[in-house]
Nucleic acid binder design. Structure first.
Length: 849
RNA sequence: GGAUGUUUAGCUCAGCUGGGAGAGCAUCUGUUUGACGUACAGAAGGUCAUAGGUUCGAGCCCUAUAGCAUCCACCA
């Protein structure tokens, strides 16, 4: 006997360990068709948040559903070393202990990092278990595994040999806090308050000056020119002259280029080729010098005179003061402008000219655009992917870190020649590049490198391409697109067939969850309060594909209530059928209308649910199931079945019980992918069951003849109308009324009076072909109901007028359509037929009023 | 500047290829009905952002406008 209340804690206990122990999570049944996914590997930096919970639940629902549908489901577990993020965390920890990474050296630091990894991997495993994820741990991978490292080196070497990886000096985004280069997409822009400084630049050989405005005076030490637009009437005569740079008194030329926006600032722009990507492009165009003015800590260097050694912002203040003293400051404007911050350290990135490794994007992007067969769900995210691909710049892949895949490039100490090699170069004349690769360089290989690629392993052959990848839309650029182009380049195939994109989770006010706002929700807290099944149900239902969701605690609670509803319906059904119940065969044709009706509804539900599950539309699937569970099963049939169960037809009692158990079982299996713990608990309580619900099959929808079931619909409406009548007339719910049910040709089903008595508390019920009742009349499609009560003439008249008005309006609507030649000519036949039927019904009802 | 999403009940959101507006929560009324008060029975609540258009028919398609959100690019 189940407990009276659904207690998530009790239900969840022990199940996960058991599934794992039984090997249900391990793929490899070759007799089945494969269905494969790889988990987006979480960073080993900390706790998993609600976004992870959502993402993994979507995958788990898919995995469990596909397993029920008979697939060999392979859902690969794994984690990402997360280069910058992890190194930053480890360094922070070390700093608290009073050591720097340089004190430890590369080896010593890496040892600490691996210790960190072990600790956090353990956390992540615990959270996965808590979420109930059926991950295949036998195939678990880490991005720094030996095998993945081999794949990374192979990819690097191959791309290098093809000329798709190169080492070059370009402007990159530099994070002065973490002291590493970043790729463009690792920079986040935000509107920050700043100042716009207007300075006088004396024009050499005249008493005149040019006004130049800048937000970054400290970079003036790297200036090599001032640019104006040659079409600018104010300045075009100055092109070719020189001005004095007020920062260092050096003479620099005034040059003309149409790049300059005449409207912006003063229309005269200073050019700093080594600290600005646009200026860099200009400098290349005109063959100018590149002067760096900062070192790797973003402090001013030897090109900055007395400012050398100052922090970039200290320098800015001091320099502005100096220029003001020199009488060359005109004004300072407060402005708000976009400033780039490092995604990890959040410090302001410094564009710097540096020698780094890059992936040449154009050829890879073209291939991805032309050959990708990935089916994005929802489809619109294909545009997001394509748009980014079309505009992708070369990808800076070297990072000045220690935690990661070390770049397999070796430099000749004397000549500087480069060797790129998949195996270590032991020649003492060569030294290996100190840098490691961007984390995303290895995650880009995740769908195939985890399966053993570049070896043609059995897993690779069987599970690649993956069937599905699930991720949030903010990761399309970072990961999805890179997997696609690497996969096409190296395997010749798209990495996965479908790519299901979901949104981001926000707080109840729609704000992003963030540490600084302190509005983050720990999934573990939610689980402790409501259970993981309720959390899972909340996360994956009630939202449209690709949309963001807000975390609203009441909704989790509502989910929990729903599960409790299922729990209690199961408790009831299992209680009445008893433990040793033997199901009898259910022959549809021999059933009574109420039983037929619920089976028809159940099978329609199975069909709809399955249809939406197949499309990954879990929200829609859950809606259909929910309505069936609440309305059709619990509110209607479960109540109705009590009549048969109290009757004396022992044979039919058994059939009703069988139907109840059958429906319950199907509900349990359908809710189980969403709520696996309660699913398993209830499943194992069924009179007959396999060892685990994980071994079950999905219900198969049957199609039944629905003829003659209108009377059941009429019957349910009668109950509602009687209840409604009592409320309207301020009668107690158990007030005893007299009812008359009038039929046309065919008597309503046996026992309809018993059912009506039970659910309307009616006293006398007459079933007749004719009646002269003066009671309130309700006309349905097959039946008519009179409520015989002391009803005032006035009320009867009002009711009749209301019904009449309604029917007349409906008839007018139908006629309007059917008399419209355009409608009759153009609308689909079925629709016209439907309207004709409706019209006939309404006219019939009107006649009967 | 470019792109995408969004605007539906008090709140949070669904609404499949166009064919009579839905849920949860909140509100109101009633209920010790023999699974469930984490419940049951009912009620109230909507110019589907605005303006045009297409169509026999528009919440859904098209155009424009406005608000909100996000992403990309630029910003001396």
């Amino acid at each position: 006997m189940l407990d009276k209340r659904y207690d998530p804690k009790k239900v969840e206990e022990g199940k996960y360990e058991n599934w794992k122990k039984e090997g249900y999570f391990t793929a490899g049944d070759l007799s089945k068709l494969p269905f494969s996914m790889v988990i987006p590997p979480p960073n080993v930096t900390g706790k998993l948040h609600l976004g992870h919970a959502w993402n993994t639940t979507v995958q788990d629902i898919t995995a469990r559903y596909k397993k029920l549908k008979g697939f060999d489901v392979m859902w690969l577990a794994g984690m990402d070393h997360a280069g910058i993020a992890t190194q930053a965390k480890v360094e922070e920890k070390l700093r608290k202990e009073g050591v720097s990474r340089y004190d430890l050296g590369r080896e010593g630091f890496l040892k600490k990092a691996w210790e960190w990894k072990a600790e956090y991997a353990d956390n992540i495993h615990k959270q996965w278990a808590k979420m109930g994820l059926m991950l295949d741990y036998s195939r678990e991978r880490f991005t720094l595994d030996e095998q993945l490292n081999k794949a990374v080196l192979h990819v690097f070497k191959t791309l290098y040999d093809k000329g798709l990886i190169y080492r070059g000096e370009r402007i990159i985004n530099y994070d002065p806090e973490l002291k590493t280069a970043l790729s463009n997409i690792e920079v986040e822009y935000s509107d920050d308050p700043g100042k716009f400084f207007y300075f006088k630049y004396p024009i050499v050989g005249t008493n005149d000056h040019l006004v130049v405005a800048t937000t970054r005076p400290e970079t003036m030490f790297g200036d090599t020119a001032v640019f104006v637009n040659p079409k600018d009437e104010r300045y075009k005569h100055l092109i070719g002259k020189t001005v004095i740079n007020p920062a260092n008194e050096e003479e620099i030329p005034i040059m003309g280029d149409e790049y300059v926006d005449i409207e912006f600032g003063t229309g005269a722009m200073k050019c700093t080729p080594a600290h600005d990507p646009n200026d860099f492009a200009l400098a290349k165009k005109y063959g100018m010098k590149f002067i760096k003015c900062m070192d790797l800590e973003a402090k001013m260097n030897e090109n900055c005179g007395k400012y050398k050694g100052l922090d970039r912002y200290e320098c800015r203040d001091a320099l502005v003061k100096q220029i003001e003293k020199d009488g060359r400051l005109i004004k300072i404007e407060d402005i708000v402008h976009q400033v780039g911050h490092s995604e990890r350290s959040h410090c302001v990135v410094e564009p710097m000219l540096m020698k780094q490794w890059f992936v040449k994007m154009r050829p890879l992007a073209e291939q991805a655009l032309n050959k990708s067969e990935v089916n994005f769900v929802p489809e619109r995210f294909n545009h997001t992917f394509r748009q980014w691909m079309e505009n992708a710049d070369d990808w800076c892949i070297s990072r000045q870190l220690w935690w990661g895949h070390r770049i397999p490039a070796y430099y000749n100490k004397q000549t500087g020649d480069i060797i790129v090699s998949e195996t270590p170069v032991t020649d003492p004349n060569y030294v290996q590049d100190e840098d490691v690769l961007d984390t995303w360089f290895s995650s880009a290989l995740w769908p195939f490198a985890t399966l053993g690629w570049p070896e043609e392993t059995p897993d690779f052959k069987r599970y690649f391409p993956n069937s599905l990848l699930v991720t949030a839309y903010d990761i399309i650029f970072f990961w999805v697109s890179r997997m696609i182009f690497d996969s096409l380049e190296f395997t010749g195939e798209s990495p996965f067939k479908d790519c299901l994109i979901h949104g981001l989770i926000r707080d109840s006010q729609g704000r992003k969850m963030s540490k600084s706002l302190g509005n983050g929700i720990d999934p573990i807290d939610v689980i402790d309060k409501y259970g993981v099944d309720a959390l899972r149900y909340f996360l994956t239902t009630g939202s449209a594909p690709g949309q963001d969701i807000r975390y609203i605690e009441e909704k989790v609670q509502a989910s929990s209530n729903y599960l409790n509803k299922i729990w209690n319906s199961a408790r009831y059904v299992l209680d009445i059928v008893g433990e040793n119940f033997k199901e009898s065969d259910i022959k549809f044709d021999e059933l009574k209308p109420l039983e037929k009706d619920i089976l028809v509804k159940m099978n329609k539900t199975i069909k709809s649910v399955e249809n939406y599950m197949d499309k990954y539309e879990y929200s829609m699937a859950s809606t259909y199931l929910y309505n069936f569970v609440y309305d059709d099963f619990c509110s209607n049939y479960l109540e109705m079945s009590k009549v048969a169960l109290n009757g004396d037809d022992e044979n039919y009692k058994n059939i009703v019980k069988s139907i109840l158990v059958n429906i319950l079982k199907n509900i349990i299996i359908m809710i189980y992918p969403f709520a696996p713990f309660i699913g398993e608990e209830l499943y194992l309580a069924l009179p007959t069951h396999l060892k685990s619900i994980m071994l079950e099959s999905y219900p198969v929808a049957k199609k039944y003849d629905e003829k003659g079931l209108e009377e059941v619909a009429d019957f349910y409406k009668m109950i509602t109308d009687v209840r409604n009548y009592k409320v309207n007339n301020k009668l107690a719910p158990n007030y005893k009324l007299n009812l008359v049910v009038v039929y046309k040709d065919k008597k309503p089903f046996d026992g309809i009076d018993t059912y009506l008595r039970r659910f309307t508390f009616a006293d006398k019920i007459e079933i007749t072909k004719d009646s002269n009742s003066k009671g309130m009349k309700f006309v349905y499609s097959a039946l008519t109901l009179y409520i015989d009560d002391s009803i005032s003439e006035e009320d009867l008249k009002l009711k009749k007028e209301k019904d009449k008005a309604f029917l007349e309006a409906e008839i007018a609507r139908c006629k309007g359509m059917l008399n419209n030649p355009n409608f009759v000519n153009k609308a689909p036949k079925e629709k016209i037929e439907l309207e004709k039927q409706k019209l006939a019904q309404f006219e019939e009802k009107l006649k009967n009023l």
